[in-house]
Amino acid sequence: MSATTIEPGEHAAPVIELVEVRKTYRTGSIEFEALRGVSLRIDQGEYVAVMGPSGSGKSTLMNILGCLDTRTAGSYRLAGEDVGEMDEVDLAEIRNQRIGFVFQQFNLLPSLPAWRNVELPLSYAGVPRGERRARAIAALERVGLGEKVGNRPGELSGGQQQRVAVARALVSEPALVLADEPTGNLDSTATADVLQLFDELHAQGRTVVLITHEQEVAERAARIIRVRDGLLAEVGVRS
């Protein structure tokens, strides 16, 4: 089977460039090829949804895009930088500076108030404390939680927690916002709120990659990429 290559218009600088990326998991003597040669280019300011059933390899793709996992073969350039030869320390810096994550499980630290959760990426970036607090509160205001900066995650609803997570993904002004099933644990009202936030981010010119298995969520994006059996199978571009 030949690898699928996706070539969008050449109008903007690429944020993501994957070339023939493969990922093989090895458990004892059993090998499983989760990605079987994926090439993908996502440009600055795009809003992309990655869709696919469980086991299709979309989570693996997301982990590789987020530098949370390593490739078995192929090359990956993120915002112009080759992450292929980077060590743990450089990768940590890339995740810190270039990528904002939004997870299905929110992944907030329960013992910290909202603003302390949001400032975490800045504290690893070495931003001074006063500036960190100001930027964290500004990010929370941007997602409509200006009144809740001092609340701990346990005191917030699911939708509010996910908005805290979005604020945390934004606070370091990353090149790429990467969301893995961000609405998977939310009711329809909260889902609408969070998707509205992604629409706004896109409107502000941010690059958003959203992974989902829900068609209606995916349809908010300008471009839909389908993953099946470790390959990019289909492209839908909305005009």
Binding site: L68, E88, V89, A92, R95, N107, L120, Y124, R168, S172
Partner: peptide, 16 residues
């Protein structure tokens, strides 16, 4: 472990 994974995802280097 999850907290460590999250901190690493947010950009904590191993030394931190």
């Amino acid at each position: 472990t999850r907290e460590i994974g999250l901190r690493k995802a947010l950009g904590a280097p191993p030394a931190a």
